[in-house]
Design a protein around this nucleic acid. Structure first.
Ligand code: FES
Ligand code: FES
Lengths: 138, 138
DNA sequence: GACAAATGATACCATTGTGGTATCATTATG
DNA sequence: CATAATGATACCACAATGGTATCATTTGTC
């Protein structure tokens, strides 16, 4: 029945774990087989995720034998929020459920304002979390 | 592609609108036909929603000709959070994505703590919102 | 009591999002 | 040139969401 709300989904989670792994390594390329062995993520799914991260310019890739991926930036410059956005879109709670349909008093809707506040808070909380922070557990 | 996170879904929205309508009326029963005309919610869907609200004891129902629904409590004693819970379950962000799988350091996971904070904030923000408040726009 | 008007219960359906798989093309190394 | 890797893309299964349909039951009115 009723599911509870989820802020982080599997895509994001896997992506973060992969990014953390690479951050810990610091140097050199990391291949999919290596990640699969360490992180226990289904191989084809992981590949898709890494490709997305590559397209979004969070990873640099090297094709061919001995190839793999590495972080496109320093770990402290990759924020969790960014990863969330890639896989789940921006955090927008205040978008009224009735998108197109006219909402009586959209301008000064009480609920809307509250949701806006919450949205802002979530962003503030998540913004300072970086891959660097995650691997040092703070 | 990536959808943005939604805190309030259609069920909840419709439910709240129906509850507000009844709150505004103050007295007497409200029938499904009446609600359909005023709120433009698909009739069978609205019926299902009202039945849920009835089962969860947020509405009192009267069967038979001239029957309908009315609020089971004063509007100021029905919180939005309660309605959200009915249709979407509790707001639990901190449930790690990997439910069963062991999460390395679940105890002092940084992300987990942050999500806990956010979860708490959302609850604090939503708790004081009641049907009474919604119909007076504050 | 018959009938109409309402809810109760429940089963079903369509669309979409999420999580996951498979396949073939391309590129780089040795 | 063989091999090992990524790039691109299409596909699939399951579940959640949003919505429909149907029949049973209750109640008021004539
Ligand atoms: S509920 Fe739509 S703007 Fe308030
Ligand atoms: S990510 Fe699972 S507990 Fe932190």
């Amino acid at each position: 029945m009723a599911m509870s709300i989820r802020l982080i989904n599997r895509n994001t989670d896997y992506a973060v774990r992969a990014l953390c792994y690479m951050a810990r390594k610091k140097e050199g390329l990391t291949s999919v087989p290596e990640l699969v062995k360490s992180l226990r993520i289904p191989r084809p799914f992981l590949r898709k995720i890494l490709q997305v991260l590559h397209n979004k310019e969070l990873l640099i890739s090297q094709k061919g034998a001995g190839g793999g991926f590495k972080l496109a930036r320093e770990p402290k410059k990759i924020s969790l929020l960014e990863v969330v956005k890639v896989f789940q879109g921006p955090i927008k709670l205040s978008e009224c459920v009735l998108q197109k349909e006219a909402c009586p008093n959209k301008k000064n809707c009480f609920l809307r304002r509250r949701l806006g506040t919450i949205e802002q808070f979530i962003n503030i909380q998540l913004k300072p979390i970086t891959i660097e922070g995650m691997i040092h557990g703070n």
